[in-house]
Amino acid sequence: MKASRRGLFPALCGRVPLRPPGARPEPEFAALCIRCNRCITACPYKTLKPASWIYGERAGTPLVVPRKIPCYLCMACPPVCPTGALDPITDKRAVRMGLAVVDPESCFAHQGILCRTCVDECPLEGEAIYQDGELKPVVTEKCVGCGVCEKVCPVAEPAIVVRPRGDQ
């Protein structure tokens, strides 16, 4: 896609929101989303919120702030999208919202402090994130980006965060 079609404000502020499960890749999602709030209404966990003005013209589109409420992969939202901005998938393992990234600088496990909260809480139970021989968390390609790990990370500024797959 041409640079101009990637959106103006996101290009300026560099913020890419984490999208609901099933979301099309980013420029397309923002183009297809009509802010009907139906996915937000469908979410039983109040995970999805409309984006604010800091996302420029993408304001009003649904996003996930995992540190507040992560996605629990109940898959209630993809089928309600009227425009195809969300693919109507039902398999939580097919979700590709983002990819969790561990910050070795602040992760307790990387400092020799045994912490396995992210591994224990991961809904994919060992598939998306596992502990290596030194019990450091390792994220695999199977990570769906639900953000539960980011939510529960005990470090004040979470040491594991979900990078949206959006514009990558």
Binding site: F108, G112, I113, L114, C115, T117, P154
Partner: peptide
């Protein structure tokens, strides 16, 4: 030298 999170 290892500790768990609680201990830390």
């Amino acid at each position: 030298g290892f500790l768990c999170l609680k201990g830390f």
